[in-house]
Amino acid sequence: MSPSRAQEAVTVRTFAQRFSATRRGARLARMLAVQQLDRWGHPYGSPASETVALVVAELAANAVLHGRVPGRDFELRLHHREGTVRIELSDTHPAHPKLPAQDPTAEGGRGLLLIEAVATRWGTSPRTGPGKTVWVECVLN
């Protein structure tokens, strides 16, 4: 029998909240995400806090403007683990976000370019029920 290595404990911190699919809900999602990050040791105004604020603001704005289904909320989840944060935003609209074409005059899509610039990686995944989840992973400095 080979000796087994002890597994290191990994702490994963999670925050989850549903918000109304309104501008007020989007603003509250950003504010609570930054507050939660502060509780996890990344103070307001730090590069990590600013990055998460930008990502949540863009995802929540997209959920309100493009992913809104009347009477349905959106959900924000944050998973903090070993210097990274995974931001997940779920809404009930079936359309998936796409990066804009290389057309500088294109309407919209620039928020996804910002997300791509600050994220380690991002994508979409199906969710239970209607809609999708857009997720973004960022390194916290």
Rank of each mutant, 00 (worst) to 15 (best):
Trp122Gly: 01
Glu75Gly: 14
Thr105Asp: 10
Pro70Phe: 11
Pro104Gln: 09
Leu89Gln: 08
Cys138His: 03
His66Tyr: 15
His79Met: 12
Ala117Gly: 11
Arg68Glu: 15
Val85Phe: 05
Leu89Arg: 06
Ala106Ile: 04
Gly111His: 01
Glu107Val: 12
Gly123Val: 09
Ala119Trp: 05
His80Val: 15
Gly131Ala: 06
His96Phe: 08
Gly129Tyr: 07
Pro130Ser: 12
Arg121Phe: 02
His80Cys: 13
Asp91Asn: 15
Asn62Ile: 01
Gly123Asp: 01
Glu137Ala: 08
Pro70Thr: 13
Gly67Tyr: 07
Ala117Trp: 02
Gly111Val: 00
Gly131Trp: 03
Thr124Asp: 02
Ala61Val: 13
Gly109Arg: 07
His79Pro: 04
Cys138Ile: 11
Pro130Gln: 09
Arg121Thr: 06
Pro97Ala: 05
Glu116Asp: 10
Ile87Asn: 07
Thr120Glu: 15
Pro100Ile: 09
Glu75Tyr: 11
Val56Lys: 00
His96Cys: 07
Pro94Arg: 12
Val118Lys: 05
Glu75Ile: 10
Ala101Ser: 14
Pro70Met: 10
Thr51Glu: 02
Ala57Met: 06
Arg110Ile: 04
Gly83Pro: 13
Thr124Met: 01
Val64Met: 02
Pro94Ala: 11
Gly83Thr: 14
Glu58Val: 01
His79Cys: 09
Glu107Asn: 10
Ser125Ala: 15
Gly111Trp: 03
Ile87Pro: 13
Pro104Glu: 13
Ala60Pro: 12
Arg68Asp: 13
Ser90Asp: 15
Thr128Lys: 06
Glu137Ser: 13
Arg68Trp: 09
His80Asn: 14
Val85Ala: 14
Thr133Lys: 03
Gly129Leu: 05
Ala60Gly: 07
Thr133Ser: 11
Thr124Ile: 03
Leu78Pro: 15
Val134Gln: 05
Ala117Val: 00
Gly123Leu: 07
Cys138Pro: 09
